[in-house]
Design a protein around this nucleic acid. Structure first.
Lengths: 245, 245
DNA sequence: AGTGATTTGTGCGTATGTATG
DNA sequence: CCATACATACGCACAAATCAC
């Protein structure tokens, strides 16, 4: 293992971006922890078999992301940034899950609307397609940094006014409570990963090509009746999930 | 929502590749399931706001990957390919997990070695750093398609010869059984996502910029003693995880 | 304080890749 | 298939900041 990772040309991905991705991963793997710096540009250029300009483009992109900081004469320093850990369990709650890891969490309601359930939403919520549901578009932040954006659907008959309740309360748990649902549990979680699209880039402050962790999750009340279906998109460099069995 | 996802210029990712990624994701999302075909090139060009030439480059790349097949006079047909679902639970086993979704699964042992546990491995296996461990490098395939590559560590004292056992048996479960461990459970799973590196691209047959789901997992015997720590890297377009609570 | 070595910052000319029409 | 425009990548040279001695 640990062979010389060569960079590939003419693949539709610019060399500087491939190199940026490599360095980003090496940093998150802790490969440069001893010095706290990235190797000199000339060394990286040699390692990747590219010109120093190309390495500089990569490092400039990482500096833009806030991952490194270049200092003339000294080198390129790594800015420490921890990943939030997001536990997934029967008791999964966003705000509680990261409460002790961030000084401040914030929930923004981008918008809400009533609509008819499409096939997918209907399947997850165990209702007939066309049944009225309320859709919420939200963004969550931890310490001013956007962490995820989510689209959630709720049966409209049972949770009328959840949009306003969420805006007021600032969390799903509290909005549910305000509407008479005192407790709920996570029934199913589906996890995939993909590239960020332009909406992700805008809402989460990402760079093109960024990686997302995507969950599709269904919550039920204590009787097992579905109360919420959500598609959440997390910035993969800011979050990890843990499952304890 | 559902706004027109614009494609972005000057981001280090060629337009044709961004479009290929979008179409690939749309296909895997089932967006074109009604017709089984991708929309006409002229329509796609209009949607993405690019020239038809650019769309053609994207479709050519997807055809190269075997995801679509262009037929003159008819359109661009989608080749069916499902995402394997990989359940994560206390009873998580790779081969069992996807047994009913693939006709044939295969495990390749790329190599194995005995080494001293570094800080991370030691922490996960609850042993002292420097303790002897056996490291296995494996690749798993389902229906001839590589699904994941993994690095696993086992306490050397307890599981001497697990490399050969794995090569013979073709699964961790059977290798454990051959060494006297009849049962084990998944204790902890940590999930992140990142870009594929060149080793991933080579071992899993991916394209540069591909997205990976990465798990760090620890298995214990029935007494709760750690028996295995693994870092697995899954091609995100071929796999999803589910957690049932 | 001075000098050289190291490292990042900048400029410019050229070749090739990407995208348009 | 071609002409045009811009992005990407290279090679070389030199300036500016930092550090060790």
């Amino acid at each position: 293992m640990a062979g010389i990772k060569q960079v590939q040309r003419q693949t539709g991905v610019a060399l500087w971006r491939q190199i940026a991705d490599r360095i980003r991963e090496a940093i998150s793997r802790g490969a440069y922890d001893e010095t706290g710096m990235v190797p000199p540009e000339t060394v990286l250029a040699l390692q990747f078999g590219v010109n120093r300009h190309t390495v500089r483009s990569a490092l400039a992109a990482l500096a833009q992301e806030g991952i490194v900081r270049a200092v003339q004469g000294r080198g390129t320093l790594i800015e420490r940034k921890e990943r939030l850990n997001f536990p997934i369990s029967r008791r999964t709650r966003f705000t509680d899950g990261i409460r002790d890891q961030a000084r401040e969490t914030r929930a923004l309601l981008l918008g809400h609307a009533q609509e008819q359930a499409d096939a997918e939403v209907a399947r997850w919520l165990h209702i007939k397609p066309g049944t009225l549901v309320i859709r919420l578009e939200t963004v969550r932040e931890a310490d001013k940094r956007p962490v995820s954006r989510a689209t959630s659907w709720f049966p409209a008959a049972r949770f009328a006014g959840i949009g306003e309740a969420y805006r007021t309360a600032g969390s799903i748990t509290k909005a549910f409570a305000a509407l008479g649902l005192s407790d709920y549990v996570r029934a199913t979680t589906e996890i995939t990963a993909a590239h960020a699209d332009s909406a992700d880039i805008a809402d989460l402050g990402l760079t093109p090509g960024a990686v997302l962790l995507i969950t599709k999750a269904m919550n039920t009340d204590l009787e097992g009746v579905p109360v919420q279906y959500s598609i959440s998109r997390f910035a993969a460099d800011r979050v990890q999930f843990t499952i304890e069995n």
